[in-house]
């Protein structure tokens, strides 16, 4: 499907080069470079306002970058001639506020893009949708509407909505921040399961335990820059940068 498949060495799943973004006079991203290999789980940490969400949203161009280059499996994401909608089928996104469509059932939430963008017939779309709901453990709730689901269930449906498109990479923006503590585990379990199945994932979150258990690499962002990156052990046990240290110290109390 990608040009890369024919090449000798598969390109990284996602690359970001020199990404810059300003809102008005405020420069929120000051040159981000990032490479994510296939099946890698990269965990992004950083204080509020450091630009984590903006970086994520630039990756699928919900936010238009001011400068920089992004590629997905070797295919350009930035640039004028990109078929953005086709490309977004290959990048799943999960939002802090779930953003499920309230007027559609769980299954219809999942099948909308399958039917309207991939133009699958209804039966085919529903089969894929049910399979995706099954992966997040919610096949039984296919007919329920978002208002009838708990926050954790809604977020899992939102994950299924992205998963059903069989994306090459999944972008998570604080997927558990809006959840009651007892519901966080279900969502993280689903993410852990995706990781085990080989999904490539870029995760912005404050769940440090999840980072230790599942992340291949942790990135610390501050003031629009990547300050430090390394394995979870390196970042959590022996941070090189003072700002990383102070930030982590605030969380250590919480386990």
């Amino acid at each position: 499907m990608t040009q890369a498949a024919q090449g000798a060495v598969a390109p990284p799943t996602l690359t970001v080069r020199g990404l810059r973004k300003s809102f008005g006079a405020e420069e929120v991203l000051k040159g981000i470079d990032l490479t994510i290999a296939r099946s890698e789980l990269v965990f992004v940490l950083g204080p509020s306002g450091s630009g984590k969400s903006t970086m994520l949203r630039c990756c699928n161009r919900l936010e238009e970058p001011d400068a920089g280059e992004i590629t997905l499996e070797g295919d350009p994401v930035t640039g004028p001639k990109v078929d953005l909608n086709r490309l977004r089928l290959r990048m799943g996104m999960v939002f802090q506020a779930f953003n499920l469509y309230p007027h559609l059932s769980a299954l219809s939430n999942v099948t909308l893009a399958l039917r309207k963008v991939r133009r699958l017939p209804r039966a085919k779309a529903e089969a894929l949708g049910l399979a995706a709901l099954d992966r997040v453990g919610l096949k039984a709730k296919a007919g329920s509407y978002p208002a009838q689901l708990s926050g954790g269930q809604q977020q899992r449906v939102a994950i299924a909505r992205a998963l059903a498109l069989e994306p090459s990479v999944m972008l998570f923006d604080e997927p558990t921040s809006a959840l009651d503590p007892e519901l966080v585990g279900d969502v993280l379990a689903v993410m852990q399961d995706m990781k085990a199945q080989g999904m490539t994932m870029l995760v912005v979150s404050h769940e440090m335990k999840f980072a230790r258990d599942a992340a291949d690499r942790v990135i610390f962002m501050d003031a629009g820059r990547i300050v430090e990156e390394g394995s979870p052990e390196q970042i959590f046990e022996a941070p090189q940068h003072e700002r990383t240290e102070t930030f982590l110290a605030r969380f250590s109390g919480r386990g």
Partner: peptide, 12 residues
């Protein structure tokens, strides 16, 4: 967020 969710799944 409704626009963003939809656009993120490839809908125009």
């Amino acid at each position: 967020g409704q626009w963003e969710a939809s656009r993120s799944t490839g809908l125009g």
